[in-house]
């Protein structure tokens, strides 16, 4: 066979196979979850937990998860943007500080979440005396997702043309105005993708929350209450509660659904933002 045809042909086959493999894994996972969960009514989402999770719904778990993710987002968003700008600004000047920071962020981004869990337990729960609480969990998750989100936000800012800075300076614009009115809107699609990916990771986190937000199944009344996240609920039902398998699968289906909704909203809002930047 002609070498050229063989090379091109095998390349096409390999790329198709990789695509199909990814889709197959996704399809199998979704099938597995929905097959075992069976059909369940919306009441599952809106009713209280009964029998340690074997019966009833998952309302307190959904509320706790939302509060944890909300705390995590509120804390991590400004820090991520600020640090990303810091890195972006200094990397253009190639200082050693930025190189050092980047290496530490990369190491932190690949640190296992259980290590963040231990850190959160020692620092937030014990040292700051926040105890097993939604606040501790949210703050720990913020620490965990920050490195990756900062690096992605920095990439987004770096992708904006260097001329914007020069042009803004020549128009007498301040650094603050350059950041908030030029760079941020110009990099908005990438920035929102970074933040939403971070939130997605926070939503599905288990290990970091085991030691920080706790196991309690009650409806949380404040951020200082302990609360169980969806992923911990799945873990607990599957590992510790005999007869909890079906509700574990149902909870997994809800978690998958939430991730799907968040990603779709992210995509839609990114498109909307990109359009708005142009129109306004």
């Amino acid at each position: 066979m002609d070498r050229y045809v063989f090379r091109e042909g095998s390349f096409t086959v390999i790329t198709w196979l990789s695509g199909i493999a990814v889709f197959a894994i996704f399809a199998l996972l979704v099938f597995d979850v929905f097959y075992h969960s069976g059909l369940f009514s919306l009441e599952f989402l809106f009713s209280d937990v009964k029998g340690a999770g074997r019966e009833g719904g998952i309302l307190p778990v959904i509320i706790s998860t939302s509060l944890i993710v909300l705390t995590c987002s509120v804390v991590s968003l400004p820090i991520a943007l600020g640090s990303a700008y810091f890195l972006f600004y200094f990397s253009r000047q190639n200082t050693r500080i930025s190189a050092l920071l980047r290496v530490s962020l990369d190491v932190l981004a690949s640190t296992p979440s259980i290590v963040f869990g231990l850190f959160g337990s020692a620092f937030f729960c014990l040292y700051l005396d926040l105890g097993f609480s939604i606040l501790s969990g949210g703050l720990t998750l913020a620490c965990m997702i920050l490195p990756a989100v900062i690096r992605m936000c920095e990439e987004g800012l770096s992708a904006t043309p260097e001329e914007y800075g020069l042009q803004a300076a020549a128009l007498g614009m301040s650094k603050t105005a350059l950041f908030f009115h030029v760079l941020l809107p110009a990099a908005l699609p990438t920035l929102s993708a970074a933040v939403l990916l971070g939130i997605g990771r926070a939503l599905s986190e288990t290990a970091a929350l085991l030691f920080t937000s706790g196991y309690v199944l009650r409806m949380p009344e404040s951020l200082m209450d302990s609360g169980r996240s969806l992923s911990i609920h799945i873990y607990d039902l599957a590992m510790n509660i005999p007869g909890g398998d079906q509700n574990a699968y149902r909870t997994a289906a809800v978690l998958l659904g939430m991730l799907f909704v968040i990603n779709s909203v992210a995509l839609a809002s990114m498109n909307f933002c990109a359009g708005r930047v142009i129109r306004k």
């Binding site: 020069l166 042009q167 030029v182 110009a186 930047v277 142009i278 129109r279 306004k280």
Partner: peptide
């Protein structure tokens, strides 16, 4: 005011 070699409007309206 300054005008550069490469015209760089901001990516807005």
């Amino acid at each position: 005011g300054m005008i550069f070699q490469k015209p760089t409007p901001f990516p807005f309206s």
